[in-house]
Computed example of a mutant assay.
Amino acid sequence: MRMHNADENCGIAQAALVLGDWWNVLVLREVARGHVRFDALAAEIGLSRKVLTERLGRLVAHGVLRRSLYQRRPVRHEYLLTDAGAALVPLLVAMQDWGDRWVLGDGSLTAAAAEDGAEHARVRALAGSRVPEDLLLPGVSGPEPVVAPDAAATVLFAYPGTGIDWGAIPGAAGCTLENRLFRDAWPDFLRAGVKVRGISTQLVHEQQEFARAEEIPYPLLSDADHRLAAALRLPSFRGADRLRHKRLILVVDAGRTVRHTLFPVTDIPHAVEESLRLATDCARTP
C-alpha cells in the first residue's frame, strides 16, 4: 500500500495499513470468536486456502496474531491474538455497533432491538454455538470462567449497567430491577443446579459497590475489554461514555453450548422466570 509521507505519523493511517482490507478484519473477527484453526477460519469466512494463508501471514508479520503449534505430524498451528491483537477487539466491537446502528439500523440510539432485525437474528443464531473454553472475565475475586465449570447449566445475563441515569435511551433502564429479580430467584437456580452470571461493561469496582449494596450472591463479571461481546458478537449501544451490552439472556449447558437465547428482553420479570424454567430443563437434559 502506497502512503503519503504525511501518513507516517498518523496513527489512523498506520492502523489502516495493518488491517489492510476487509478480509483481514474478518480474520480478526473470527479469531476473537474462538475460531483459531486454519480449517475453521476458512469455513467461517469462505476464503480460499491460498488467500487465507497470505492474510494470516501478514497479520502474524504485523504482530497482531501469533502461531501456536498444536500438532506435530503434520505440523499445524492455531492463530492467537497477541497483546496488540487483543487491543483491536474493542475496535471490532465498535465497528459492529456502528454497522448495527447506521448501516443495518435507522441511526437511532437504542438499547432495544427489533425482533425482525439483524441483531435479533445474530443472537438467535447463537443457539447451538459454543462459548470459547478459555474465556475468562474479571470479577470481584479475580478472573472467572464465563460458564460455571461445576454447574449443570449457566444463565448469562448481559445488561447495560447499574446506577446510571439512562434518560431517553429506549430499553436501557431496569438493570437494578433485573439484578434484584435474579437475586431473589437465586435459591431456585441453585436447587436446579444452575449458576448465574451477570455481565456488563462496567468496571470491577463499580460492580463490586453495587453487589455489596444489593447483596448480590452470584458473580458480576466485567466485559470492559469487550472479549465476550466479540466472541459472541453481542449487540451493543453507546451510552454514558461507553459501549454497553444490550439486555439479553443466554442459557448455556455444561458443555458450554448455548441452548436458549432471550432477546430482546422487554418484560424483565417474565424473562427472569423464563430463564429459570429453560435452565432447569437444560440441567435435567443430558
Rank of each mutant, 00 (worst) to 15 (best):
V204P: 00
V204A: 04
V204M: 08
V204I: 06
V204E: 05
V204Q: 04
V204N: 04
V204G: 04
H205W: 15
H205Q: 14
H205R: 14
H205M: 14
H205L: 14
H205P: 13
E206Q: 04
E206N: 03
E206W: 02
Q207S: 07
Q207V: 06
Q207R: 06
Q208G: 13
Q208L: 13
Q208R: 15
Q208Y: 13
Q208D: 15
E209V: 13
E209G: 15
E209R: 15
F210V: 04
F210C: 05
F210W: 08
F210H: 07
A211W: 00
A211I: 05
A211D: 06
A211M: 08
R212C: 10
R212T: 12
A213I: 09
A213V: 07
E214Y: 09
E214S: 11
E214D: 10
E214I: 07
E214N: 12
E214V: 07
E215H: 10
E215I: 10
E215G: 09
E215Q: 12
I216S: 00
I216W: 04
I216T: 04
P217M: 06
P217V: 06
P217W: 07
P217H: 07
Y218C: 11
Y218N: 10
Y218P: 09
Y218R: 11
Y218W: 14
Y218D: 11
Y218M: 15
P219L: 07
P219N: 09
P219M: 05
L220E: 04
L220D: 00
L221K: 01
S222H: 05
S222T: 01
S222D: 06
S222N: 08
D223Q: 02
D223G: 01
D223A: 06
D223Y: 03
D223S: 04
A224T: 13
A224R: 15
A224D: 14
A224C: 13
D225W: 09
D225K: 11
D225G: 11
D225Y: 09
D225R: 08
H226Q: 11
H226S: 11
H226G: 07
R227W: 10
R227M: 10
R227F: 11
L228W: 00
L228P: 02
L228V: 03
L228R: 00
L228C: 00
A229P: 00
A229T: 01
A229V: 02
A230H: 02
A230N: 02
A230Q: 02
A230P: 01
A230D: 01
A231S: 06
A231T: 03
L232M: 01
L232V: 00
R233N: 07
L234K: 02
L234T: 02
L234Y: 00
L234H: 01
L234R: 00
L234I: 02
P235L: 03
P235D: 05
P235H: 01
P235K: 05
S236R: 06
S236L: 12
S236H: 08
F237D: 05
R238C: 14
R238V: 15
R238A: 15
G239F: 07
G239Q: 08
G239C: 10
A240E: 10
A240I: 09
A240F: 09
A240D: 11
A240S: 11
A240T: 09
D241K: 15
D241C: 13
D241E: 15
R242M: 13
R242G: 12
R242P: 09
L243H: 10
L243E: 10
L243S: 12
